[in-house]
């Protein structure tokens, strides 16, 4: 072997060590995330945070806890919208809600809720359908800053046009403007929407089941995992769902490659909505 050209590129070794340091020191486990896009975001972080190498970044991360949130901003992706993929929410409304009506109380888990866009979409939909009162929503994420933003429910005004359009396309029966107040270029969503919401720090990689759900929506989170990790998360969902409970995934996610696929039936195939089997 040529000694100047090691099997693994130096940058790849450094990244592996950095992720190891992040895990050992802070218990954030990104070691089995989808590497191609993670690497891209890490390179961005390295440049913008001003480190010459990932090794230098690792040293700073180990010794300075203030580096953690700064790095997490790059490692996790906070791209979201209210009523993102309106057809998904239409399918929830038209196909899933009729089943949910038959339960006297409901638990709904929004896993990887980011800054709350998906959560508020569900709460508004449930309020429109008269289910909000009987529901507890669990909104979880690993990014503390995102969770705080979700709890605040404040968004830039220029995003509202898209949110409103999406809400309308999803079959919304009220006006989105009923739920927020605008001021100073921002809108803040009504605090009553949070009445039945529990926000909490929970990782699909390292944490366990915490309750029995009738509906879990986990969208555009597992796309960032490798297959092994996707499988762990899907196993967690399978265990967390009541019999005949529902699981909704992102538009480009599926159970196809999962070991746990046989725990589920297709429910609304095109929208990646699955139903937990009874057995």
């Amino acid at each position: 072997m040529n000694r100047s050209e090691p099997e693994e590129k130096v940058e790849d070794i450094e990244i592996r060590l950095l992720l190891e340091a992040l895990f050992v020191r802070y218990h954030y486990d990104f070691r089995n995330y989808s590497m191609a896009s993670l690497k891209r975001r890490l390179r961005q972080a390295r440049q913008q945070l001003g480190f010459a190498t990932f090794s230098a970044m690792q040293e700073s991360l180990l010794h300075d806890p203030a580096m953690l949130p700064r790095l997490l901003r790059y490692l996790t992706v906070q791209v979201s919208e209210m009523f993102r993929d309106p057809d998904y929410f239409r399918a929830i409304r038209e196909n899933v809600v009729p089943h949910l009506r038959t339960y006297p109380s409901l638990k709904v888990w929004i896993a990887g809720c980011s800054e709350g866009e998906e959560l508020y979409s569900f709460v508004i939909l449930f309020r429109e359908e008269g289910l909000e009162e009987r529901t507890i929503f669990y909104a979880t994420d690993i990014n503390q800053e995102a969770l705080q933003a979700a709890e605040a429910g404040v968004y830039a005004l220029d995003r509202l046009q898209l949110f409103t359009e999406n809400h309308r396309k999803s079959g919304g029966t009220s006006s989105l403007s009923d739920y927020y107040q605008a001021a100073y270029g921002r809108v803040s969503f009504d605090r009553t929407l949070r009445r039945n919401v529990v926000f909490s720090d929970h990782s699909l990689v390292t944490d366990a089941v915490f309750g029995e759900m009738q509906l879990i929506s986990c969208r555009n989170v597992m796309i960032y995992f490798d297959r092994k990790l996707q499988d762990r998360a899907i196993g967690l969902f399978s265990e967390s769902l009541a019999r005949k409970g529902f699981l909704g995934l992102g538009a480009k996610e599926s159970l196809r490659f999962s070991r746990h696929a046989s725990d589920f039936d297709d429910f609304v195939r095109e929208e990646k909505i699955y139903q937990r089997r009874a057995t």
């Binding site: 989808s34 191609a36 896009s37 891209r40 975001r41 992706v77 791209v79 796309i223 480009k252």
Partner: peptide, 16 residues
């Protein structure tokens, strides 16, 4: 986005 993983799998992402 469409990306290629080191193990020659495709990956999608909704990064910015």
């Amino acid at each position: 986005h469409l990306l290629i993983e080191a193990d020659k799998c495709l990956a999608l992402s909704s990064d910015e």
